[in-house]
Nucleic acid binder design. Structure first.
Lengths: 189, 189
DNA sequence: ACCTGAACACCGTTCAAGT
DNA sequence: ACCTGAACACCGTTCAAGT
């Protein structure tokens, strides 16, 4: 982050999210970040009350750029089945997204990160439920299928992180997604 | 942990896993743990080379007591379908298990925790694949369904952590599991 | 063989002092 | 208005000294 002007809170937030993606929230250090941005650590406390506020700013930055913006793009796709395929397929094109997701999700019990995670989750579940409603399912079934879909989505990242061999190639992921979405689009019994 | 005898490494590992479940790996402090166990922090370094070794010991303790022991119990169930239902149902009876799971999984990139997580994941996938083989699926399909099942399993914890409302009641969880397992047991097309 | 207590480095936080 | 530099507390790690 090279800037001739003065540092904005957004600069700190962006650099923090970068650091979080790489080494996790626990390893986020005000001192390291300050020297990386070329200022003293005392300067940080002009912009933020404490380290927690920096984590919050980073998480809010993620909520806006990673989630809200993504949904606006996806909503443009007319066919709900195609929208689901794209939504879940897209997520695997950006491994960095999975890293941030994992780093933040690990801190749901954190009082500042927790509410943001919950907002994003509710928003994604609602978005996915809407797609299943458009596919013709009744509301309870649609919500249900959205839960399964989103669980499988998060779990897929978890499996991949936990075992690099399991979902390594694009072919495996595509087959996985195809089978999952076929199952989920099948009529309710 | 009240003991009249001297502290064993296992005592440290167990107390550490307890602390990790409550506040995460990041908040695990040698100093706090030592004073909780009633010794000075210098004493810790007689049993372990460093803090990382303590985390490793805690994770190994989890691998043995939480995973290996559980599989031995489950393997005793004859019917593979019933075994799967019990396996996934059981996991929700112990919320503490999910907390530890999340705390450890958040550190897959950690050089000492990572290999342990991967071992556990491989073992669980193999265990689940075997159940689907017994149900009559071909090996590739069985492995595939195991991946979906295990993803949905991990994701279910993630969803629950992320949104307490989503999978809160036993009824919702049971319905979720029933629908998921019905889908997964359906013949391949 | 196992533990203590003092020492040092790293980092979060505060604050008086600078521009 | 924004930043520095020194100060202090907390915690990881080392180590000489105790039993």
């Amino acid at each position: 982050v090279a800037r001739t002007e003065q540092l904005q809170p957004a600069d700190w937030a962006q650099a923090a999210l970068e650091a979080i993606a790489e080494r996790g929230i626990g390893a986020l250090s005000v001192e390291r970040l300050a020297s990386r941005l070329g200022v003293s650590k005392g300067s940080f406390y002009w912009h933020f009350p404490d380290r927690a506020a920096l984590v919050e700013a980073a998480a809010l930055y993620w909520e806006e750029t990673g989630t809200a913006a993504g949904q606006r793009v996806m909503q443009a796709i007319e066919d709900p089945g195609e929208r689901l395929r794209r939504l879940f397929g897209e997520a695997f094109a950006y491994p960095r997204a999975g890293q941030i997701e994992a780093a933040l999700t690990a801190h749901v019990n954190d009082p500042v990160v927790g509410p943001i995670i919950r907002r994003v989750t509710e928003s994604r579940l609602a978005f996915t439920t809407r797609a299943f409603l458009e596919l013709g399912f009744e509301r309870p079934t649609a919500r249900h299928r959205a839960l399964i879909a989103y669980s499988a989505y998060l779990g897929m990242f978890a499996v991949r992180r936990a075992d690099g061999r399991a979902l390594a190639t694009r072919r495996t992921v595509n087959a996985y997604l195809a089978e999952l979405l076929t199952m989920l689009a099948a009529p309710a019994d």
